[in-house]
Design a protein around this nucleic acid. Structure first.
Lengths: 333, 333
DNA sequence: GTGAAAGCGCTAACAG
DNA sequence: CTGTTAGCGCTTTCAC
C-alpha cells in the first residue's frame, strides 16, 4: 500500500488497442463529440469498463487549448461569506464540467499577488477574486493572461473584466440611515481590520459620512487590526462602552462581531434595544434565530457565486452586475 | 477585453530563444534543479521578466510523472469544520508547492463517488476525504488509482491508506460520561442527519450506549434528516421539550445546534444549567464567548489538516493517527 | 464513420 | 555546465 503500490495508469492508447479501434475514435466516443457507430461505441465502452480507464485531464487540457479550471483566490475560508460564494458557484461549474481550484490570501494583497501568479500557471479559464483592490502586478498579470476575471462581492470600483456583487458603500449608507431614522443619536462602531478587508472599510467610511452629513458624527469606535470574530465583537463592545458609556447604538463590521456584542449585552444585563441597539452586516442565518432577531443587511452571497459561475460558463461579455442587498429590520435596532 | 482579448501565452521555448540558451537550461533555472552558471541564470531571468513568462503547469505535470495536486473531497463548506481542515492543510501544501483542488459532496456518498472519479482524472498526488464510509466503487477507484488517500476526522474504522483524526465513538462516550458524572439523569438528544453524517452517527450511538450501560437510557430525542444549523438546534429543542418536559440535560450533535438550543432557553427563560444543561460538540471559538461558556468537546480540526498535508508531503507510510480531543467543562453543563 | 499523424508545453535522460 | 532529443496522454486536423 501507500507509496509502494505502483500501478501504471491505463491510457487511451491501451483502450484503443483493447477495443481494436483507433485512438481518435476512443476520444470521440468518450467525449461524445464527432460521429461513430453504435457498434464501436459499445466496443469502446466495454474496453473502458474492463480496463478501468480514467481519462487523464492533464493531458486532455494540454492537447485542447482551453482548460476547464476556475481559480478562486479568496481572502478566507473561515469567513462563511466566501464559503457561501463557493457554494453558489459550485453547482453551476460542476454541471458544466468545470473544476474549481482555490487558494486563500488571508486578506493580504501580496499573498494575493503570489497566488494569482501560481494559479495562472494552471492556465485557468477564469480567476475569481474578492473586490477591486489588487497590487499593480496582480492587475498586470491578470490583464496579460488570456483568461476571464471576475471580481466578486463589490461593485464600487473599476472592474478588470466582470464584476458581480453589491455596493458596500450603499450598504454602509443604508445602515446609517436606518439607525438615524430609528432615532439613535449616539452611535458607535466596532470593527475589524479595515485596511485589509477593504469592503468593510468602504462600509465604514460610507457609514461615517452619512452620519456626519446628518449632523450626528460617530460617537466612538473600537477597531481591531485583526480579522473579525465573535470574540473581538464582544471585547470590542466592552472596550468601547468603557470609553463611551452613553452610546445608544452600535454598528458592527459584520454579524459575527455583532453576535459578540449581543453576548456582551446579555452577560452585562444591557437591555437591547432600549438601552443599546445593535446592527450587523451579512444577514447570516443565525441572526434570525437569536432570541431577538438581529437587525442587519442581508447580502446575496450564494447568488453572487452562482452568477459569477454562470457568466464564466456562458462566456458573457465584460460587465458589472449589482445584485443589491436587503435591510433586515430585526429586533436589535 | 474579455473574450476578445486573445493573446497567445509565452512559452518556455520563446524564453529559451530570447535568452539564447536551450530549453532545458531555462527549465533548470526556473525549477532551480540541476546546475547552471550565474551568468545564464541572469540571462534567463531577464528574458522571463521581459516576456512576462508564466510556466505552464499543465504541461509540466504531464511531462514529469507525478502531479502536485491534492484533491479534497469534503462534505460541506458551510460547516466550519471542513474550512478549518482546509486551512490547516493550506499552509503546508503551499510551502511545498502543492495545489489544492476541491469538491463538495453535501454528505452524499453517490456524489462522493462521482467526484472522486472526476478528481482522479487530474491524477492528483493525494485524495483527502472525510471519514471511512464510502461506496464500493469509490473504494475500488481509490485503490486502483496510483495516489495516496487520507481519510480525515475519524479513526473508528479501517483505513484505505492514511487516516488522521480522532475517535467519534470516544467523543460520544466521553460526553455521556461527563453528563452522568455531573449527575444528570434525564438526558435528551437533538441532532441532525445521522445517516449521512456518519461521524455524528457514531457519536450518537456511542453516547446512547454509554448511557444505557449506566442504567440511564436516553430520555428523548429530536433528530432532523437535514444538515445541522443553529435554527434546527433551536426548533429541535423546542419540539423535544414539548414532548419530554422533564429533561435535565440535552446533548446536541454539534455546537451550532447547541447554540440554537441555548438561544431557545434564553428566549423561554429556561435557566442554564440548573433547569437544563446543554452540551455540544466541536469546540468552536464562539462557545467560549457565549455569556455562559459552552460545555463541549474540542476537536483538533486545524491540526488534522496540517498533519494530513504533512503526511502527503513527506510521503509517509500508511498509518492511522489519533489526535484525540479535549473535553471543555464550560458553564452550560 | 474511422485512423494516422502532428502537436500542446514541458521535463528528463543523455550526450557533449 | 549546457543543448538535443524523446516522450507525457490526449485532441485535432486531415485524409480515406
Amino acid at each position: 500500500m501507500g507509496t509502494s503500490r505502483y500501478q501504471a495508469a491505463v491510457t487511451l492508447a491501451q483502450v484503443a488497442e483493447a477495443a481494436g479501434v483507433g485512438e481518435s475514435t476512443v476520444s470521440r466516443v468518450l467525449r461524445n463529440h464527432g460521429s461513430y457507430s453504435g457498434k464501436t461505441r459499445d466496443r469502446v465502452m466495454t474496453a473502458v469498463e474492463r480496463l478501468g480507464y480514467v481519462p487523464n485531464r492533464i493531458a486532455g487540457t494540454l492537447a485542447s487549448t482551453g482548460s476547464r479550471l476556475v481559480a478562486f483566490v479568496i481572502p478566507s475560508l473561515s469567513n462563511i461569506v466566501f464559503a457561501d460564494v463557493l457554494r453558489g458557484a459550485g453547482a453551476t461549474l460542476e454541471e458544466n464540467q468545470y473544476q474549481a481550484v482555490f487558494a486563500v490570501t488571508d486578506y493580504d494583497p501580496a499573498r494575493e499577488e503570489a497566488l494569482v501568479g501560481s494559479m495562472l500557471a494552471w492556465r485557468p479559464a477564469a480567476v475569481m477574486l474578492a473586490g477591486y483592490e489588487h497590487t499593480g502586478r496582480t492587475i498586470t498579470m491578470l490583464r496579460t493572461a488570456n483568461c476571464r476575471v471576475v471580481e466578486m462581492l463589490d461593485v464600487d470600483g473599476t472592474a478588470l473584466d466582470l464584476a458581480v456583487g453589491f455596493s458596500n458603500r450603499a450598504a454602509g449608507r443604508a445602515s446609517a440611515e436606518f439607525l438615524l431614522k430609528r432615532g439613535y443619536r449616539r452611535i458607535g462602531y466596532v470593527g475589524h481590520d479595515l485596511e485589509r478587508d477593504t469592503r468593510a472599510g468602504k462600509r465604514y467610511s460610507s457609514f461615517c459620512e452619512t452620519l456626519s452629513v446628518n449632523g450626528v458624527p460617530l460617537a466612538g469606535q473600537q477597531i481591531y487590526r485583526e480579522a473579525s470574530s465573535v470574540e473581538r465583537g464582544r471585547l470590542g463592545l466592552d472596550l468601547l462602552l468603557a470609553r463611551t458609556p452613553d452610546l445608544d447604538a452600535v454598528y458592527f463590521s459584520n454579524d459575527d462581531m455583532a453576535l459578540g456584542g449581543y453576548f456582551h449585552c446579555l452577560a452585562r444585563g444591557i437591555v437591547i434595544p432600549s438601552q443599546l441597539a445593535i446592527f450587523g452586516y451579512n444577514g447570516l442565518d443565525l441572526g434570525r434565530v437569536m432570541p431577538q432577531a438581529l437587525s442587519t443587511i442581508r447580502t446575496p452571497r450564494v447568488a453572487t457565486g452562482q452568477l459569477a459561475a454562470k457568466l464564466i460558463v456562458d462566456n458573457a461579455p465584460s460587465q458589472v452586475i449589482d445584485l443589491g442587498f436587503e435591510l433586515i429590520e430585526g429586533a436589535t435596532a
